[in-house]
Computed example of a mutant assay.
Amino acid sequence: MTTKSRDELLAEGVDLRARGEAEQARDRLVALADRHPDDAEVAYQTAWTHDVLGLEAEAVAYYERALAGADLSAGDRLGALVGLGSTFRILGRYEEAVRTLRGGLAEFPGDGALRTFLAMALFNTGEHDEATRILLELLATTSEDPGVRTYRKAIAHYAQDLREIVPQES
């Protein structure tokens, strides 16, 4: 009888999640994470699986373990930052969400997912102006909608200060 490697077990867990068998994936990934507590990639995949199952509170510790490790690819690190920030927000831990997502933007400044989730978290903290500014800037720079493209420059301008009023001449 051959023992499966860490890589094989991780691939099986990820594949199970991708096929919609998240409970089975969770069982395998939790066991693998217990055997490899310092493995950032295993922790990230385990966190992601918890999120898929709606187990956000349990996902946090795995995201934190993943981000504390040094062996995550840039793509997985980005995913873990988005995941943790979003998870904090869903749990009502808004300040932690804002801090995590701002930290993610320091590492990945142009990422639209980080910017979007930051806007949501800022909305939850009452920072409506900044949340709206972020979303309007994102819309102006990324939308392919013909109407938005026509008014891209104006949208980007007004995103800076939605309260701006041009004085009327009498």
Results as ranks from 00 to 15, higher is better:
T3D: 11
T3W: 12
R6A: 06
D7M: 07
E8Q: 15
L10H: 08
L10R: 08
E12W: 00
E12M: 10
G13T: 08
G13F: 06
V14Q: 07
A18S: 11
R19C: 10
R19G: 03
E21M: 07
E21L: 10
A25Q: 01
R26L: 14
R26A: 10
R26C: 01
D27Q: 15
D27A: 15
R28M: 13
V30F: 04
A31H: 08
L32T: 08
D38N: 13
D39S: 02
A40H: 04
E41G: 05
A43N: 01
Q45P: 00
A47T: 09
W48K: 03
W48A: 14
H50E: 09
D51M: 10
D51P: 01
V52C: 05
L55G: 09
A59G: 02
A61Y: 03
Y63I: 02
Y63Q: 05
A68D: 14
A70N: 13
A70S: 15
L72V: 13
S73L: 11
A74G: 12
G75F: 11
R77H: 09
L78T: 06
A80L: 03
S86G: 15
S86F: 00
T87N: 01
T87S: 06
I90S: 13
R93N: 11
E95S: 13
E95G: 05
E95Q: 15
E95M: 01
E96A: 15
L101D: 03
G104K: 06
E107S: 15
P109F: 11
G110F: 10
G110W: 03
D111W: 11
D111T: 10
G112K: 12
G112Y: 10
R115K: 14
F117Y: 15
